[in-house]
Structure formats: structure tokens, C-alpha cells
């Protein structure tokens, strides 16, 4: 039974997209990755509107002062097991916004992160690769939890 649940979880990662103060470049590329040409939905990914339905939080931006508590709250609202994927250089390290008085230095200063996708903005191919890497990670974690190699 747990294998079935794990399989279902792997095959249908539901995404929640959150912009914590990015320039929109990565956000349109995330959307482009879901569009006909790159079609991330063939991996079962689906963009959801509520954190309560989501498995993967797809984050962009360096986290502004106003958004930091909101990001934390949204992360807390997501059900376990949950994963965080950061898209873009500024979400990974602060990037071009490093040193700005109202921006933190990346998503991982606020919540734990599983996958980083660099690029300014990240290309849809890179985002698709990041999603596949995340699914591999999930698979390994599931195997470990079941005591398999």
C-alpha cells in the first residue's frame, strides 16, 4: 500500500508557485515550462492555487522584507511531505539583488530548500531538469524510508 502511495506521489507532483519579490523573468519561464513546447505536465506536474493542495513549492526571488513572513506561512500551510524548488539565481543566493536593504539573500534564509535551479532567468529546460532531479530525490527518499537500497 505504501508503495502505491509513493508511486502516486512521484507521478503527480502538484506545484505551487510563489513569487517572493523577483523580477518576473523566472516566473514567466516557469509558466513557459508548463506550456505546449516544454510541457512539464507530462511528468504529472500541475500548477495549483492553494498551498494546502501542493507538494512542491516553486519559489522565485530573493525574499523581500514584506514577503518573508508570508513565505514562511505558506510553507507551513503545505501538507507533509513537502519539497521546495528554487528557480533563479536571486532565489539561490540573492544574485543581482544582494546587498539591497529590503531583500534577503535567497529563499534558504527563510525555509529549507531541496533543489536549486540557477540562471537569470532560468531557462525552461533547466526548470524541467530541476523538476526531474527533484523527483529522483523523492524516489530515493521513499526507498530509504521503506528500507530498500
Amino acid at each position: 500500500m505504501s508503495r502505491l502511495v509513493d508511486w502516486a506521489r512521484r507521478s503527480s507532483p502538484w506545484l505551487l508557485h510563489f513569487n517572493s519579490g523577483s523580477c518576473n523573468g523566472c516566473d514567466i519561464e516557469i509558466l513557459a515550462a508548463l506550456m505546449p513546447r516544454f510541457d512539464l505536465e507530462r511528468f504529472g506536474a500541475l500548477l495549483k492555487g492553494s498551498p494546502r493542495h501542493a507538494d512542491v513549492l516553486v519559489c522565485t526571488g530573493p525574499v523581500t522584507r514584506q514577503q518573508a513572513p508570508r513565505l514562511r506561512r505558506i510553507y507551513e500551510q503545505m501538507p507533509e511531505p513537502k519539497f521546495v524548488m528554487v528557480v533563479g539565481t536571486c532565489g539561490s543566493t540573492g544574485g543581482v539583488f544582494r546587498g539591497c536593504y529590503n531583500a534577503a539573500e535567497g529563499i534558504d534564509t527563510v525555509i529549507p530548500v531541496d533543489v536549486y535551479v540557477p540562471g537569470c532567468p532560468a531557462r525552461p529546460e533547466a526548470i524541467a531538469l530541476g523538476a526531474v532531479k527533484l523527483l529522483e530525490k523523492l524516489k530515493n527518499a521513499q526507498k530509504q524510508a521503506r528500507g530498500e537500497k
Binding site: 522584507r65 514577503q67 539583488f97 539591497c100 536593504y101
Partner: peptide
């Protein structure tokens, strides 16, 4: 509209 304010005008000066 304060959610996306990063402080770019100050950053330009630096």
C-alpha cells in the same frame, strides 16, 4: 503594493 519592493533605487547608487 509594498510586497515586491527590493530597494533597487538605492542599489543603483552603490
Amino acid at each position: 503594493i509594498e510586497y515586491n519592493h527590493r530597494g533597487l533605487e538605492k542599489a543603483f547608487e552603490q
